[in-house]
Design a protein around this nucleic acid. Sequence first.
DNA 1: GTAGCTGCAAACCGTTTGCACGTGA
DNA 2: TCACGTGCAAACGGTTTGCAGCTAC
Lengths: 138, 138
Amino acid sequence: MTMKKMSQNYRITKQRQKILELLTNTREHPTADQIYKKFKGKFPRLSLGTVYRNLRILKEQGQIWELDFGTGLSHFDAVVHSHYHFICKNCRKIYDIRIPSIKELDDRVRTLTGFRIYSHRLEFFGLCDACNARQIVR
Amino acid sequence: MTMKKMSQNYRITKQRQKILELLTNTREHPTADQIYKKFKGKFPRLSLGTVYRNLRILKEQGQIWELDFGTGLSHFDAVVHSHYHFICKNCRKIYDIRIPSIKELDDRVRTLTGFRIYSHRLEFFGLCDACNARQIVR
DNA sequence: GTAGCTGCAAACCGTTTGCACGTGA
DNA sequence: TCACGTGCAAACGGTTTGCAGCTAC
């Protein structure tokens, strides 16, 4: 039997604050390393390990999401509202798709499988305007 | 300017055949290591590197898909027909959801963004019957 | 005071790669 | 024949972790 720690008393540190702030104020979906590099100039003592640890904690708290778009890296996103993503097959840029979560999808799968559905993830792949204009074929 | 090899002359080797066969005949979504372990008994000289190389080639040929379910590992799937997946948050088991691809989703995003949409990926998260019955809470 | 956090560096582990030998067409 | 594939082992790179000192509370 594994026991969960009774209660984690999270603290508010400058590092954690700054990381959450960054994720809240950007529409990009940065990786741990991108976050690290962004702060390295102002806080030269910051370590990549700290970034990873804080990302894990913020995720545990439900303040951010960890997303995988098949790029081999984890991308992070402040949880503002549920939304979908578009990934350009050429430039790998990730865009938010601003349509609300389609709850009927969950209902449909619940009916079909009988499973308890918590959420779903929907991602679109294709070419963004810029890459499409350049006639890139993949 | 990067040049792509003019034409790759793929060969049919026993290893490649066996891997594709395995993926075609299973409804699981094995990782590279699981495939490797499955064959290691019969073919003790098989190397994990070969499994990875063949998976890459089969993927290039469009015969299999590489899927990421946020487990930190790549899962592989023979391409029989397009379908969705359900991942149990507790036991991490992956199930096929047997509803056909909803093309209207692509149309909707195309209209909204103007991007060229090739495909989408849809995954559901929740608890499977077995885990739900055990009253597991996450 | 002390549990939680940090920087640092090493470890971890899934995946890729260089190399010499093997093999399918 | 010879380009492609294999086994083997080392390298790679994103992420995690052990540790000693630091800090929020």
